[in-house]
Structures are given as structure tokens and as C-alpha cells.
Amino acid sequence: MVERQSPLEPVYHPGSHGNFEHGIDVILSETRPGSILQLAAWPGEEKRLMSGIYKVTGLALPDGAGGGVSNGAKSAFGFAPGKFTVVDEAEGLASAFTGVLTPSIGTLTDLSHGRTAIRIAGPKAEWVLAKFFAIDFALPAFPLGAGRSTNHHDIFAQIQRSSADQFDIYVFRSFARSFWKALCHASEEVGYEVQ
């Protein structure tokens, strides 16, 4: 398998940074999933697509806008009407949908090489993200597993809450380095560690 290069590599500096003397309040990392897919159902085919996602990944998507679920290795969430992002640590998830996601249900786009996955975790994760995105990051408004589509200036972002104080952000690979640098700057005040 070809070794995938990270767009963050020149600016990815593991260790503690910023104002960390009083503690590390966020941890930043690149999760580098092997598969990042977008699945879109034709109108009226959402339920069949969701059951196809369950068949392939074992992830049972909840009903409702932006509903999602994560089991650590695999994640899925709605990001638009009838559209879902499905992520797997392992490569090759797209081919697993062959025969399940038939042309009568919808379409699959493999974005594994087109998106970069950035994880922010820690007690100040909501605080730091609130500086970027004009959405409500509080747990009642943004429940566990749920996904949100939003943007920071022209950098489109899909965000999934993968645990109570952890978010996974999917950004265009071509903008990822710029976004990462901005995220590091925004995390300086709370003290951050890059893992």
C-alpha cells in the first residue's frame, strides 16, 4: 500500500505548546483514518442507505438531522439531508459498499485522499472551537456522535462529536495546513499538546 503523506507534516510539532504551565487543556492530533466516504441517498431512499451503512459498518445511525454514531474505529454522521459521512480507521471501506449501495439507492464518493481529519480533545475543546465556528458546541445542542456542517471563513468543515469533550473535524486536504496552524494559534491561550 502506498504511504499516504500528511499535509500537516511541515507544521506538525508533537509536544506541549502555548500557555501550558498551568496545564494542558486541549490535545490536538491528526487521526489519519484510512477511509473517508460520503454517501448520498436519492430522495426517499435515506432509510435504505442507513440500513446499508449498518450492514457494512455495524453502525446504527439515529434518525434526525445531523445524527451520528462512533465506535472508535468507525464513525458515521449525517451532514446534509440524505447525506452521510462514513469514516473507518482501515482502508478499503469504499469497496465494502459494492453490492450494498446499489445505484437505485444512491451514490458513494471516496474522499479518503481529499479530506484531513483533525481531532481536538480536552476540557477546553468546546471553548477553542467556539472561536472558529458560529454554532453551539454545548452537549445538549451538539450531542454525542452528532455531526455538523459549517465553515470557518472559506474552509468548509464537517465536525463530529466523538466523545463528551472530543471533536473530529474533517477539512479539505488543501486547506488543512492553514486550518491546523489557526487551530494551534487559537489553542495557545489554554495550553495545548500535539500528539
Binding site: A65, G66, A80, A134, I135, R148, S149, T150
Partner: peptide, 11 residues
């Protein structure tokens, strides 16, 4: 937005 909920006009 009927899907996303209240969002700033900039979106």
C-alpha cells in the same frame, strides 16, 4: 436551516 438549525447569514 430546516436541517442544520439556526445559523449566521454568513453561511
Amino acid at each position: 436551516c430546516p436541517y442544520c438549525g439556526p445559523r449566521d447569514v454568513i453561511e
